[in-house]
């Protein structure tokens, strides 16, 4: 190994913190464009982290995972989402939830603290890897994003963040788990179907991606 193990661990920790900060930045956005760019950045940071984990463990599957994360969630899906935004020829902003965003950021911070406390009590004794607390908290933040936002594209970033979190957890907890690449591929195919096909149909037929129009079904 060219780089010392302690340095790699420290870099991995730093990248983990950056992933968490990107999640908080996502929570704080009311416009859709920066949300999409933030999820792309988060995926690219995570891809770098997978490369570091590869350098630490030598497990080649982590390198493939890094390539998929960077290529699909870092570039492809965000590009399609930005294309959807450009179609409307104006900067899309959350309707309704915009005013609540600052308080949602506070909720996010509380979730980070509470999630870490929960992780430390319930999971750390078994997993014995404190770094897993980052993806654990990230899963909670992604759920928050999905359930509190009304714009379909922002909800989609929540889904991508959740996928990032679970693959991150998988790489930390059990990097030797079989099928990790396949898991990522299936999730990414689903992501492409969501943004490429369903959202395109939504845009064509409903002429909006805002939730008030996506609330026809009741009862």
């Amino acid at each position: 190994m060219i780089l010392p193990a302690t340095l790699l661990t420290e870099v991995a920790g730093l990248l983990g913190i950056l992933v968490l900060l990107s999640a908080l930045y996502l929570q704080g956005q009311t416009f859709v464009d920066p949300t999409i760019r933030a999820i792309a950045a988060q995926s690219l940071i995570l891809a770098s982290l997978f490369v570091i984990l590869f350098l630490e463990s030598g497990d080649v599957s982590l390198l493939y995972l890094a390539a998929i994360t960077a290529g699909v969630r870092g570039v492809l899906i965000p590009s399609v989402m930005l294309y959807q935004v450009r179609h409307f020829r104006h900067s899309m902003r959350e309707s309704g939830t915009g005013q609540r965003v600052p308080s949602l950021v506070i909720v996010g911070v509380v979730m980070i603290i509470g999630g870490y406390a929960l992780f430390k009590t319930a999971l750390l004794p078994t997993l014995s890897n404190p770094a897993v607390s980052v993806p654990f908290v990230l899963v909670l933040l992604s759920f928050l994003l999905i359930v509190t936002r009304r714009n379909a594209l922002t909800q989609m970033t929540g889904f991508l963040e959740e996928e990032n979190a679970v693959l991150y957890a998988g790489a930390l907890i059990a990097p030797s788990i079989p099928l990790l690449i396949e898991f990522a591929v299936v999730l990414d195919v689903l992501g492409v179907v969501l943004v490429g096909v369903i959202l395109s149909a939504t845009r064509e037929v409903l002429r909006t991606l805002e939730a008030p129009e996506l609330e026809q079904l009741r009862g």
Binding site: V139, F143, A201, V205, L214, Q216
Partner: peptide, 19 residues
């Protein structure tokens, strides 16, 4: 309109859950 809304809701909720 309703079927597309249902498809979006189905795919997003189920996928988020399945993760």
């Amino acid at each position: 309109r309703t079927s597309i809304e249902a498809a979006w809701r189905y795919t997003l909720i189920v996928s988020a859950g399945l993760v």
